[in-house]
């Protein structure tokens, strides 16, 4: 009896607060906007019985999805989210790989401290970490003050409220997600392999490309997905650091819901966003599974 309770409690919780809400989103995405409370049609009337149910389903349609393809704001936002996520992921890889490499090759008594230093920002508020860049990137901010003082530039750079600032924000906040899996892969590596490669006549750079890099591939793939997947739907970074020209779908959904109060379109945006995310998520899971099989 108790066993069933242990299963039923988390099961019902997730059904009620995860699956059912999602089905509601799906249903509203097929509904029409209506000026009432709640602002959509049709409403399911349980009192009307079978006829009511049939009537309810006959009123659902794909109109909102057609609307998403017609108005170029939406598909532009999807494409630009994908582009920003891809570029930011590659940038994070370029910044993160040397750090992970340095950590894995550091003296072993240093590694736990370095690990803690990478994890520490992860525990710090995401919002505050994004906010900390607002003072740095603005026109009279610290970066411009420094560059002007150093004589590198003669006019302040405009970074704040552009897509560049969004890239910096994503790289900064998701860097630990990139470093940790790459570090884990590099740390497991047997360093005598490198010695063997050098004995066999590789230069150090060749040894890196032919031995170290392929062996860290699983970590690179995992890190890239861990950065890519959350950046697509990102809301906080584009709305604080980005400008009016930065189109990201998370922001579009937010504005559609809160500013335009168009619930059916916001729901349709959410459904399409999820459909886009399914592919990278499945690929990520495959990679993890392969990894586990290789280890087990």
């Amino acid at each position: 009896m108790r066993r069933y309770l242990v299963i039923a409690l988390p099961y019902l919780w997730l059904l009620g607060l995860f699956l059912v809400p999602f089905l509601i989103v799906l249903k509203i995405s097929l509904s029409d906007l209506n000026l009432s409370i709640p602002p959509y049609l049709p409403q399911l009337d349980p009192g009307a019985g079978w006829e009511g149910l049939k009537d309810f389903f006959s009123q659902l349609d794909l109109e909102n999805f057609v609307f998403l393809t017609e108005d170029d704001l939406y598909w532009k936002a999807y494409l630009s989210s994908l582009k920003i996520a891809v570029v930011a992921t590659l940038l994070t890889l370029c910044v993160g790989y040397p750090v992970a490499y340095g950590m894995a090759r550091a003296p072993s008594e240093w590694r736990p401290t370095l690990m803690m230093l990478v994890i520490l920002p992860f525990w710090t508020s995401f919002l505050i970490r994004v906010y900390s860049w607002m003072g740095i990137l603005s026109t009279e901010g610290f970066l411009n003050q420094f560059l002007l003082w150093a004589g590198i530039i003669s006019e302040p750079l405009i970074i704040m409220n552009t897509t560049k600032a969004v890239y910096i924000g994503i790289v900064y906040t998701y860097l630990p997600f990139m470093i940790l899996p790459i570090y884990a892969a590099l740390e497991k590596m047997d360093e005598s392999l490198l010695e063997a490669a050098e004995d066999l006549g590789c230069s150090r750079l060749q040894a890196f490309w032919l031995v170290t890099f392929p062996l860290s591939k699983s970590g690179i793939i995992a890190g890239c997905f861990l950065v890519f997947i959350p950046s697509i739907g990102e809301f906080v970074i584009p709305s604080l650091l980005g400008g009016s020209d930065t189109l990201m779908i998370g922001k579009v959904l937010w504005e559609e819901f809160f500013n335009n109060r168009d619930w059916p379109v916001a729901s349709a945006v959410a459904v399409v966003l999820l459909a886009i995310l399914v592919i990278p998520i499945i690929l990520f899971q495959r990679n993890e599974q392969k990894q586990r099989e290789a280890e087990g």
């Binding site: 059904l15 607060l17 995860f18 509601i24 989103v25 509203i28 739907g233 959904l253 959410a270 999820l274």
Partner: peptide, 27 residues
């Protein structure tokens, strides 16, 4: 289904989780 519901929220964009819960609470 159970394990799917455990893992899905980890990768679900926050805007979708928030939107769906709000629609449930209003519903």
């Amino acid at each position: 289904l159970f394990s799917g519901m455990i893992y899905a929220p980890l990768v679900m964009p926050e805007v979708i989780t928030g939107l769906s819960l709000l629609l449930l609470f209003i519903g």
